[in-house]
């Protein structure tokens, strides 16, 4: 069964998955209803993608509690796409402000309802990682910026090349260069042949 996330999780995502797992399990232990809202999720799998971080965490529930990890064999039953500010605001707003659901949508909605029903101060749990989150975001932004710069440089190069080749016609294209090279070789061969013939004629004289 192929993995849905073949890439290697970095330290940041490892740490985040562990934190989310801890926060959920702690909340379930402290929940007055003893996590009753989650009882229907046993053996169900969820993919939660944070679009702003480009990161997917996989959640699933067993009789031992909630498990969170960075990879999952096969497909999750339901997929939730949101962003970190929406999760951080869940406690106050009672809903994920930006969310897209895929797969078993009623199941995904039920999970969001269940998450809203328990007391989790995501901001507090994730505040330990605020520095890392910022660093991650900065790193991500830097990498994106570098990639964009490279792409822009490539694009600028292509544009300049096309301008010089086709607009001003001061630079030959690759195919023109190839044709020129071929012509030089053919001319060289013809010159060599003529030289040989001339030499043969001179030898007869």
């Amino acid at each position: 069964m192929p993995h849905t996330t073949p890439q290697t999780p970095g330290l940041f995502s490892l740490s985040l998955s562990k934190t989310v797992e801890f926060a959920l399990n702690q909340a379930l232990r402290l929940d007055e209803a003893q996590g009753a809202a989650f009882k229907d999720f046993e053996d169900k799998t969820f993919a939660v993608t944070f679009t702003d971080l480009g990161l997917t965490l996989y959640l699933f529930f067993t009789s031992y509690g909630v498990n969170v990890q960075n990879a999952l064999q096969g497909e999750a039953d339901a997929r939730i796409e949101t962003d970190l500010p929406s999760l951080l605001g869940l406690r106050e707003t009672g809903r994920l402000s930006r969310v897209t659901l895929h797969g078993d949508v009623p199941l995904a909605e039920a999970l969001i309802d269940a998450l809203t029903s328990i007391e989790i101060d995501w901001e507090e749990h994730l505040s330990h990682y605020t520095g890392d989150l910022i660093a991650f975001k900065v790193g991500h932004a830097t990498r994106s910026a570098m990639a964009a710069t490279q792409a822009a440089k490539r694009q600028a190069g292509e544009t300049l090349k096309e301008y010089l080749q086709f607009e001003l016609e001061v630079l030959p294209t690759a195919s023109q260069l190839q044709r020129f090279g071929d012509s030089v070789q053919r001319t060289q061969a013809a010159v060599d042949a003529i030289e040989t013939r001339v030499q043969a004629l001179l030898d007869r004289l």
């Binding site: 999780p9 799998t45 960075n70 064999q73 096969g74």
Partner: peptide
């Protein structure tokens, strides 16, 4: 932990 996460193990396996 890295190994466990990369395994992608799921319920029922």
């Amino acid at each position: 932990r890295h190994t466990i996460e990369l395994s992608g193990v799921r319920p029922g396996q």
